[in-house]
Computed example of a mutant assay.
Amino acid sequence: MRRENRRSKAPSSSAASALVSGRVPLVMAFLSCLAWLYVAGRLWQDAQTRAILSGLLEKRRSGSVPKALSVEDKLRNLGCKAIGRKIVEAEMDLTKAKSEGYLWGNRTAAVDSDKKQKLLAVIGVYTGFGSRRKRNVFRGSWMPRGDALKKLEEKGVVIRFVIGRSANRGDSLDRNIDDENRQTKDFLLLESHEEAAEELPSKAKFFFSATVETWDAEFYVKVEDNINLDLAGLIEMLEGRRGSQGLYMGCMKSGVVINEKWQQWYEPDWWKFGDSKT
């Protein structure tokens, strides 16, 4: 039995050796092909390089080789020289405009101080969405309206009701204010401010920023909508202080500090004034 097994294994080992010996020539042939392709590629690249060099030599001999461009030539070709001149001209125009008193935005240009003086005052009357009746009372009392309001502006005094936008942009509250403003044209709309009782400090910031950006005036005045303003007296007082630098004027209520919400002069921070509330 052992002899038969040995005899049966002998043919299989000889077949395996024959298979291995048959693969070797194939591998060698494949490697030879790769080497041939590599050599052929390098020869082709060398031929292309020689052709390019010979072409450059011919151009140099004939004098047609392009000269090296200077920085000025490169800028001229790119159009940067023309752009640079335009920038310089714009800077000169801007400097000239500033020297003549031009102001950015919609502010009044003081080109001729004799003919176009600064406004005396911009008066902002704080108002709310539910205060239309108060606004109508003001328009019929101390605050001019229509053509009278325009004539007052020509004399240097601008008056506007100041209000922000609703928390729900574009709702009926905003639409009512827009409709009223189209009729009266006496609103200053603070587009970036949300009208709410707790946002009054930010309303003051937006109000003064908007007025300074829109009008060039000597004074910017903030007025509440629960008072009757002596407009003639205010104008007379401001006229006497025209040209003052860094002037701030304000007043506070004197007397008892009200801490009941339902009363007219309620002070939310009444506790800051001490126990006596005065």
Rank of each mutant, 00 (worst) to 15 (best):
P11L: 06
R60G: 09
I163M: 04
L56S: 11
D93E: 12
K205F: 08
Y126P: 00
D230M: 05
Q117T: 15
D73N: 07
K272D: 13
V223H: 02
G55V: 07
E267G: 07
K118V: 09
E180N: 03
E239H: 10
S17D: 12
S141E: 06
G240C: 05
P66K: 00
L34W: 10
V137P: 00
N176P: 02
C80F: 14
I159P: 01
L34E: 06
W271L: 10
F273R: 06
C251G: 12
N176S: 13
V65R: 00
R42S: 14
G41C: 15
Q117Y: 02
R2H: 00
N181G: 04
S244M: 06
R241I: 14
V125C: 04
T278D: 10
V256N: 07
K134S: 09
T214P: 07
E72V: 15
D147K: 08
T211G: 05
L103S: 10
Q183H: 03
L119P: 00
A232T: 09
N226K: 09
V20I: 05
L189C: 05
R23W: 12
D216E: 11
E267D: 14
N77H: 13
K205Y: 14
P25D: 09
C80M: 10
L37K: 00
A29K: 02
Q45V: 13
P66V: 02
K67Q: 12
F138H: 14
L119K: 11
K272P: 01
D225C: 06
E58F: 07
K222H: 11
E154R: 08
I52C: 00
Y102W: 15
I87K: 14
K115F: 04
G170D: 03
P144M: 02
N168M: 11
L200S: 05
V88S: 13
G250Y: 12
A204L: 14
E91C: 10
K115M: 12
M237D: 14
D178Y: 10
A210G: 03
D178C: 13
V158K: 05
S62G: 04
Y38N: 09
E198V: 13
K203I: 05
G146M: 03
A97I: 00
S13E: 06
D186Y: 01
S209K: 15
I159K: 01
K205E: 12
V24R: 05
K116E: 13
Y102Q: 12
L69D: 08
K205Q: 13
E195R: 01
L149F: 05
E72P: 01
A15G: 01
M249R: 01
D225K: 00
